[in-house]
Measured scan of single mutants.
Amino acid sequence: SIEEEIKKAEEAKEKGKTFIHGDFVATTEELLDELLKRLRKKL
């Protein structure tokens, strides 16, 4: 679910890890923020 993806992305951000969502690879905090923004729009 979208909620689960958001939670996983937030955890990755806290730990400074890379998060992959489909073909979107978030390797930096900026990219994770962008991904979180996109996911929240889908809610």
Results as ranks from 00 to 15, higher is better:
Leu35Glu: 03
Glu30Tyr: 06
Phe24Glu: 07
Ser1Val: 09
Glu34Trp: 10
Leu32Val: 03
Ala9Phe: 04
Lys41Asp: 13
Ala12Met: 04
Leu36Met: 02
Lys17Gln: 13
Phe24Arg: 00
Glu14Lys: 14
Glu10Ala: 05
Ala26Ile: 12
Glu3Gly: 06
Asp33Arg: 06
Ile6Asp: 01
Ile20Ser: 03
Val25Asp: 05
Ile2Thr: 03
Glu29Ser: 12
Ile6Thr: 01
Lys17Cys: 15
Ile6Ala: 02
Ile2Leu: 13
Ile20Val: 12
Ile20Asp: 11
Ala12His: 04
Val25Ala: 08
Phe24Gln: 04
Glu5Asn: 08
Ala26Trp: 09
Lys37Trp: 00
Thr28Ser: 09
Leu32Asn: 00
Ala9Trp: 03
Ser1His: 09
Lys37Gly: 10
Lys7Arg: 14
Glu5Trp: 15
Glu10His: 05
Lys15Phe: 09
Leu39His: 00
Lys13Gly: 03
Lys37Leu: 09
Glu14Gln: 13
Lys8Met: 11
Lys13Cys: 15
Glu11Ser: 07
Glu10Phe: 06
Asp33Tyr: 05
Ile6Tyr: 03
Lys8Tyr: 05
Glu4Cys: 13
Thr28Pro: 02
Glu30Ala: 12
Asp23Val: 08
Lys42Glu: 14
Gly16Ile: 06
Ala9Glu: 02
Leu32Cys: 01
Lys17Arg: 06
Glu29Gln: 13
Arg40Thr: 08
Glu10Trp: 04
Val25Asn: 07
Leu43Ile: 08
Lys17Ser: 09
Glu3Asn: 08
Leu32Pro: 00
Lys15Glu: 08
Leu31Val: 05
Ala26Asp: 02
Glu4His: 09
Ala26Leu: 08
Lys41Phe: 00
Leu35Gln: 02
Ile20Glu: 12
Glu34Val: 01
Arg38Met: 14
Asp33His: 03
Ala12Tyr: 03
His21Val: 09
Gly16Arg: 03
Gly16Trp: 06
Glu11Cys: 15
Gly16Asn: 11
Glu29Ala: 14
Lys41Met: 09
Phe24Val: 06
Arg40Gly: 05
Leu43Ser: 03
Thr28Gln: 01
Ala12Ser: 03
Lys37Ser: 12
His21Ile: 05
Leu39Trp: 00
Thr18Lys: 12
Gly16Glu: 10
Lys17Asn: 14
Lys7Cys: 11
Lys42Cys: 12
Ser1Arg: 10
Lys17Glu: 15
Leu36His: 02
Glu5Arg: 09
Leu39Val: 01
Asp33Ser: 02
Leu36Gly: 01
Arg40Phe: 06
Glu5Ile: 15
Ala12Arg: 03
Ala9Ile: 13
Lys17Asp: 15
Gly16Gln: 04
Leu35Ala: 03
Leu36Val: 07
Glu3Lys: 10
Gly16Pro: 00
Lys41Pro: 01
Ile2Phe: 04
Asp33Met: 05
Ser1Lys: 08
Leu31Glu: 15
Lys8Gln: 10
Ile6His: 03
Leu31Gly: 05
Ile2Gly: 05
Glu11Val: 06
Phe19Lys: 14
Lys41Val: 11
Lys42Thr: 11
Leu39Arg: 00
Lys13Ala: 05
Leu31Gln: 15
Glu11Ala: 10
Asp23Asn: 10
Glu29Cys: 14
Arg40Ile: 12
Glu3Arg: 09
Lys7Gln: 11
Glu14Ser: 12
Arg38Pro: 00
Ala12Pro: 00
Ala12Asp: 04
Glu10Met: 13
Asp33Ile: 07
Asp23His: 02
Ser1Gly: 10
Arg38His: 15
Ile2Gln: 04
Asp33Leu: 06
Glu30Asn: 05
Thr28Arg: 00
Glu5Ser: 13
Leu31Thr: 06
Arg40Leu: 10
Ile6Leu: 09
Glu3Val: 11
Phe19Pro: 14
Ala12Ile: 03
Lys17Ala: 08
Ile2Trp: 09
Gly16Val: 01
Thr28Tyr: 07
Lys7Asn: 07
Leu35His: 03
Arg40Trp: 05
Lys13Thr: 01
Asp23Arg: 00
Arg38Asn: 11
Glu29His: 09
Glu34Asp: 07
Ala9Cys: 14
Lys7Gly: 05
Lys42His: 11
Glu3Ile: 12
Ile6Glu: 02
Ala26Thr: 04
Glu29Pro: 15
His21Cys: 15
Arg38Glu: 13
Ile6Phe: 02
Arg38Gly: 08
Leu31Asn: 06
Thr18Glu: 14
Glu34Lys: 03
Gly22Trp: 11
Thr18His: 13
Glu11Leu: 07
Arg40Val: 11
Glu29Tyr: 01
Phe24Ile: 09
Phe19Thr: 14
Glu14Ile: 13
Val25Lys: 05
Thr28Asp: 06
Thr27Ala: 12
Leu32Lys: 00
Thr18Val: 13
Glu5Leu: 15
Glu3His: 09
Glu30Trp: 09
Glu5Tyr: 12
Gly22Leu: 11
Ile2Ser: 06
Glu14Pro: 01
Ala9Met: 06
Thr18Gly: 14
His21Ser: 14
Phe19Ile: 15
Asp23Ile: 11
Glu3Pro: 06
Lys37Asn: 12
Arg40Met: 07
Leu43His: 05
Glu4Asn: 08
Ala9Gln: 02
Thr28Trp: 09
Leu32Met: 02
Ala26Met: 04
Glu4Trp: 05
Ala26Cys: 05
Ile6Pro: 01
Lys8Arg: 12
Val25Cys: 15
Lys8Asn: 08
Leu32Ser: 00
Arg38Phe: 13
Arg38Asp: 12
Leu36Glu: 04
Thr27Ile: 09
Glu11Pro: 02
Phe24Thr: 05
Glu14Thr: 12
Ser1Ile: 09
His21Asn: 08
Leu39Thr: 00
Lys41Gln: 14
Lys15Gly: 10
Glu34Tyr: 06
Gly22Glu: 10
Lys15Asn: 13
Lys41Asn: 12
Ala9Val: 14
Leu35Met: 04
Glu10Asp: 03
Leu39Phe: 01
Lys13Trp: 09
Glu5Lys: 08
Ser1Glu: 10
Gly22His: 06
Lys13Arg: 12
Thr27Leu: 11
His21Met: 05
Ala26Asn: 06
Glu14Ala: 15
Glu29Trp: 12
Glu4Arg: 08
Phe24Met: 06
Glu30Met: 08
Lys7Thr: 08
Ala9Tyr: 01
Glu4Asp: 11
Glu3Phe: 10
Ile2Ala: 05
Glu34Thr: 02
Lys13Gln: 05
Arg40Gln: 09
Phe24Tyr: 09
Ile6Trp: 02
Thr18Met: 12
Glu34Gln: 04
Glu5Ala: 15
Lys42Ala: 14
Leu43Lys: 04
Lys7His: 09
Leu35Cys: 05
Ile20Ala: 07
Phe19Gly: 15
Lys42Met: 14
Lys8Asp: 04
Glu10Gln: 10
Phe19Arg: 14
Leu35Pro: 00
Phe19Cys: 15
Ser1Leu: 10
Leu31Pro: 01
Glu29Val: 14
Ile6Arg: 04
Ala12Cys: 14
Lys8Val: 03
Thr27Arg: 02
Ser1Phe: 11
Glu34Asn: 03
Leu36Trp: 03
Lys41His: 10
Glu11Phe: 03
Glu5Met: 15
Thr28His: 02
Lys37Pro: 01
Asp33Phe: 04
Glu3Leu: 13
Glu4Met: 10
Glu14Asn: 10
Ile20His: 09
Arg40Asn: 07
Lys8Gly: 07
Glu30Pro: 03
Glu34His: 02
Lys13Asp: 04
Gly22Lys: 01
Leu35Asn: 02
Lys13His: 04
Gly22Pro: 08
Ala9Thr: 02
Thr27Lys: 08
Ala26Gly: 06
Lys13Pro: 01
Lys13Ser: 03
Phe19Trp: 04
Phe19Ser: 13
Ile20Tyr: 09
Val25Tyr: 11
Lys37Thr: 12
Lys8Leu: 11
Glu3Gln: 10
His21Asp: 13
Val25Gln: 07
Lys13Glu: 03
Leu35Ile: 12
Thr28Leu: 12
Thr18Tyr: 12
Ile20Gly: 04
Gly16Asp: 11
Phe19Asp: 14
Val25Thr: 05
Leu39Pro: 00
Asp33Val: 04
Glu5His: 07
Thr18Cys: 15
Asp23Lys: 01
Leu32Ile: 13
Gly22Ser: 04
Gly16Leu: 10
Asp23Ala: 06
Asp23Gly: 05
Phe24Pro: 01
Asp33Glu: 11
Lys41Glu: 14
Lys17Leu: 15
Leu31Arg: 02
Lys7Phe: 06
Ile2Glu: 01
Lys13Met: 08
Lys42Ser: 12
Gly16Met: 01
Lys37Asp: 13
Glu11Trp: 04
Ala12Asn: 02
Glu5Phe: 14
Lys7Met: 09
Glu4Gly: 06
Phe24Ala: 02
Leu31Tyr: 04
Glu34Phe: 04
Leu32Ala: 00
Leu32Gly: 00
Glu10Gly: 03
Val25Arg: 01
Ala12Val: 00
Ser1Trp: 15
Ala12Thr: 02
Glu10Cys: 10
Lys7Glu: 07
Glu11Lys: 05
Glu30Cys: 08
Glu14His: 10
Ile2His: 03
Thr18Gln: 14
Leu39Ser: 01
Glu10Lys: 07
His21Arg: 01
Lys15Asp: 08
Thr28Ile: 12
Arg38Cys: 15
Thr28Met: 12
Leu39Ile: 07
Leu39Ala: 02
Lys13Tyr: 07
Arg40Ser: 05
Lys17Ile: 13
Asp23Phe: 09
Glu5Gln: 14
His21Pro: 12
Ala26Glu: 02
Lys15Trp: 05
Thr27Trp: 14
Leu36Asn: 02
Glu30Gln: 10
Glu30Ile: 07
Lys17Gly: 15
